[in-house]
């Protein structure tokens, strides 16, 4: 099933949508939701079926990923600056990885997309209309999955993996609580609420992430199969 690609808004003038094929598939979900594991499994499943897969994620551009990481270390950037920095990182990958891959008919698997970036902006008090228009240059994916996991379970997964909680994933910059633990729970609930608000508008497939890796993977595959036939 090939549908022609679209932009959310103003788009990118130099990109010829009629030449884009392939599939753009997005997996969203918090840290500890099993997102990366599922991306890996999907990648080998698709490659096994003979599809060429390109993986994309946030903060992985050649353009600004280093500077963005450095800026995060110092916790010196304000809300709007941070959002624009992330948007730059995303735009670079969209134009240099995603669009060329789609033009070559490949499958692009995105480990997070603009929705995480929008949610982060909005929970920091940012304007919704502003950030939506900002991402008007983004392509509408063929499918978006949101791995939904309760923050109380996410925290376990994070402890299991790193024995600690990440400063940003806990929203510590928001000053919600002095306790990293409490802040993580509150922040992840806020993010989850934003995702649920976006659900309809952006056609999320909500995937219950509180199941075995295998069960989740099967759900994802079943939905993606529809896209591929």
């Amino acid at each position: 099933m090939i549908l022609s690609k679209q932009f959310y808004g103003s788009g990118i003038r130099s990109a010829d949508l009629s030449r884009l094929g392939g599939h753009l598939i997005v997996l969203e979900g918090a840290d500890g939701s099993g997102r990366s594991t599922q991306i890996q499994l999907l990648t080998s499943w698709l490659e096994n079926l003979g599809y060429s897969v390109v993986n994309v994620g946030i903060k992985r551009s050649t353009l600004v990923s280093e500077e963005l990481a450095k800026a995060q270390q110092g916790n010196i950037l304000s809300k709007t600056t941070m959002s624009l920095f992330y948007a730059t990182d995303f735009a670079d990958q969209l134009e240099n990885k995603i669009i060329p891959a789609l033009a070559a008919g490949e499958i692009v698997l995105c480990d997070r997309y603009i929705y995480t970036l929008m949610a982060r902006h909005i929970v920091r008090g940012g304007n919704v209309a502003w950030v939506e228009k900002l991402y008007g240059f983004a392509l509408v994916p063929d499918m978006v999955f949101y791995l939904q996991v309760d923050p109380e379970i996410l925290i376990e997964q994070n402890f299991e993996k790193n024995s600690s909680l990440n400063y940003w994933e806990s929203g510590m910059d928001l000053g919600l609580s002095n306790s990293l633990f409490d802040s993580f729970i509150i922040y992840q609930h806020m993010i989850k609420n934003e995702f649920l608000k976006m659900k309809k508008k952006y056609h999320f497939n909500i995937i219950d992430g509180d199941r075995s890796v295998k069960a989740i993977s099967r759900s994802l595959q079943r939905k993606i199969e529809v896209l591929l036939t």
Partner: peptide, 18 residues
């Protein structure tokens, strides 16, 4: 590209602004 050119300058401006 024109898009990233625009965004990176907006980031620079936002940092100085904020």
């Amino acid at each position: 590209t024109p898009t990233t050119f625009s965004l990176i300058h907006a980031t620079d401006f936002a940092d100085r602004y904020e």
